[in-house]
């Protein structure tokens, strides 16, 4: 921890905080991410999104994950990491394509080097290692940052990915957002390890845990891990300890498995308030700047709202277009059948 929950530098924080520019950028990012989470929450209540797994309260992790990467680097997000994808520069409306129900992945992964949001837990982690290894073979100095949750660290793919990364010394940073729950299952039922960061040890990977609501500390730990990977020193595991303030998704009822007191306790450790307090106390942030950040966040929310509310009828042809490079004869037949049905329906109207 570099900043305590009240926004005061800790002993470790004195002298080793990231520079003011990075902190301001992080704050702006978190304010936008929070606003994006709120907006998506409204859209799901209005029935404009099929489902929304919110990262409300986890904005420091979301923003830091994007901020520590260089332009050509890769990010591998989960379903919960929409705000990280937005922070990385992916269009917010496209990011929500999956959750709106238009298509499985709403953006071009190669545009900002952001892999599709992945739902089958931990399955994206071996992909991240493959991308990193290919980057080395191709002689680029790309680093891959792969995200997952605390629950996902129980899956076999998590362990296999760590082992592969270690054996191939792949330039990957595994970033676990430990938000204390996997849907209803608390961390204590998930793992008996002293920490999730310990899970690197058996594979020969350094593990480090960090206060996941302290943006300064996250930037510090994650950038060091990214730099280290870039120099060829191998992968690293970082556990960010945070909290899922809202239910797992809008479809979940969190009151069934946790107390309001626990949520209140964590809400007091809010990542945004903490950094803002510090930056104001240091005279780095003033009202003008704060208003500009809020304005920019509002802009993102506005664009998100507008884009999601604009209905573009998905094209049925798309169902058949991307299954193979060339549709099989059977798919050609099946598409013709759908078109015929639709034109007959049209005729009935």
């Amino acid at each position: 921890m570099l900043l305590d929950p009240d926004g005061r530098p800790t002993a470790a924080g004195k002298g080793s905080l990231p520079d003011a520019e990075a902190l301001l950028r992080g704050l702006a990012g978190m304010i936008a991410a929070r606003r994006f989470n709120e907006q998506a929450g409204v859209l799901v209540r209005q029935g404009r999104l099929a489902v929304y797994p919110s990262s409300y309260g986890q904005e420091a992790c979301q923003v830091a994950a994007a901020q520590v990467l260089a332009d050509g680097d890769w990010l591998f997000p989960t379903y919960r990491d929409t705000a990280a994808a937005v922070a990385r520069g992916v269009d917010p409306v496209e990011v929500l394509g999956l959750l709106k129900g238009d298509w499985h992945s709403g953006y071009d992964p190669y545009e900002r080097n952001v892999a599709p949001l992945t739902t089958p837990l931990a399955t994206q982690l071996p992909h991240a290692v493959g991308v990193a290894h290919a980057a080395r073979l191709r002689g680029t100095r790309t680093v891959v940052l792969a995200m997952c949750g605390d629950g996902a660290t129980s899956e076999g793919d998590f362990h296999e990915a760590l082992n592969f990364a270690a054996v191939f010394r792949a330039p990957v940073v595994f970033f676990v957002q430990n938000n204390q729950y996997a849907i209803s299952v608390p961390l204590a039922r998930q793992s008996a390890a002293p920490s999730l960061a310990h899970k690197g040890v058996g594979y020969g990977i350094p593990g480090e845990h960090v206060d996941g609501n302290d943006l300064a500390a996250l930037l510090d730990v994650l950038s060091r891990a990214v730099d280290r990977a870039r120099t060829g020193a191998g992968p690293q595991l970082v556990e960010g300890r945070t909290y899922r303030i809202q239910a797992h998704t809008n479809a979940d009822d969190a009151t069934r498995y946790r107390s309001d007191d626990e949520v209140t306790e964590w809400a007091a450790k809010d990542p945004i308030a903490r950094l803002e307090t510090y930056l104001r106390a240091e005279g780095i942030l003033d009202d003008t700047r704060a208003a500009a950040f809020a304005g920019a966040a509002e802009e993102v929310a506005h664009r998100t709202r507008d884009g999601i509310n604009r209905d573009v009828e998905p094209n049925p042809d798309d169902l058949f277009r991307f299954v193979y490079a060339e549709p099989t004869p059977q798919l050609v037949e099946q598409l013709a059948m759908v078109r015929d049905e639709l034109s007959r329906e049209e005729g009935h109207r």
Partner: peptide
């Protein structure tokens, strides 16, 4: 169903066997 990955929510009605089909 057609020989395709299960469609996204907005298009799933096209995949499911319907009375008409």
């Amino acid at each position: 169903g057609f020989d395709i990955p299960y469609p996204p929510p907005k298009l799933e009605h096209l995949q499911l066997p319907s009375v008409d089909r």
